Amino acid sequence: MKLTKRLFMSAVAIGIVGTMSGAALAADTIAIITPSHDNPFFKAEADGAAAKAKELGYSAMVLVHNDDANKQNELFDSAIAAGVKAIILDNAGADASVAAVKKAKDKGIPSFLIDREITTAGVAVSQIVSNNYQGAQLGADEFVKLMGEKGNFAELVGKESDTNAGIRSKGYHDVIDQYTDLKMVARQTANWSQTEAFNVMESILQAHPDIKGVISGNDTMAMGAYAALDAAGRKDVIVVGFDGSNDVRDSIKKGGIKATVLQPAYDQAQLAVTQADKFIKSGKTGADEKQLMDCVLINADNAAKLETFALK
Rank of each mutant, 00 (worst) to 15 (best):
3 L>F: 10
5 K>P: 14
8 F>P: 11
11 A>I: 08
11 A>P: 11
16 I>R: 12
21 S>T: 13
22 G>I: 06
23 A>Y: 12
24 A>H: 11
26 A>E: 15
27 A>Y: 11
28 D>N: 10
29 T>F: 06
36 S>I: 12
38 D>M: 12
42 F>I: 06
45 E>M: 15
47 D>C: 10
48 G>F: 00
50 A>P: 09
58 Y>Q: 11
60 A>H: 02
62 V>N: 04
63 L>N: 05
63 L>G: 08
64 V>G: 13
64 V>E: 07
65 H>Q: 13
67 D>V: 04
70 N>A: 09
80 I>F: 08
80 I>M: 07
87 I>N: 09
89 L>H: 09
90 D>H: 08
91 N>M: 12
93 G>M: 00
96 A>N: 03
97 S>L: 00
98 V>I: 01
102 K>D: 04
108 G>T: 01
108 G>C: 00
108 G>I: 03
108 G>S: 04
112 F>G: 10
112 F>H: 14
116 R>W: 01
116 R>M: 04
119 T>A: 09
123 V>K: 03
125 V>S: 04
130 S>K: 07
132 N>R: 04
133 Y>V: 03
136 A>E: 07
138 L>I: 02
139 G>M: 12
145 K>F: 03
146 L>F: 02
146 L>R: 02
147 M>C: 03
149 E>I: 01
153 F>V: 01
156 L>S: 11
160 E>C: 00
161 S>A: 07
169 S>G: 15
170 K>S: 11
170 K>Y: 11
171 G>P: 03
177 D>S: 09
177 D>H: 07
178 Q>N: 11
180 T>D: 09
184 M>Q: 07
185 V>L: 02
188 Q>V: 05
191 N>G: 00
193 S>Y: 02
194 Q>G: 08
194 Q>E: 14
198 F>I: 04
200 V>A: 00
200 V>N: 00
207 A>V: 07
207 A>Y: 01
208 H>M: 02
214 V>K: 06
214 V>F: 09
215 I>A: 03
216 S>I: 13
222 A>V: 10
229 L>M: 14
231 A>S: 05
236 D>T: 02
237 V>K: 05
239 V>G: 03
240 V>D: 03
243 D>W: 01
243 D>P: 02
244 G>R: 04
245 S>K: 06
248 V>R: 02
251 S>M: 05
255 G>W: 12
257 I>R: 02
259 A>E: 06
259 A>C: 13
264 P>I: 12
266 Y>I: 04
267 D>L: 11
268 Q>F: 10
268 Q>M: 15
273 V>R: 12
276 A>Q: 12
282 S>Y: 13
288 D>R: 12
289 E>N: 05
296 V>P: 14
297 L>R: 12
297 L>M: 12
298 I>E: 13
303 A>Q: 06
303 A>W: 11
306 L>M: 07
309 F>A: 07
311 L>F: 04
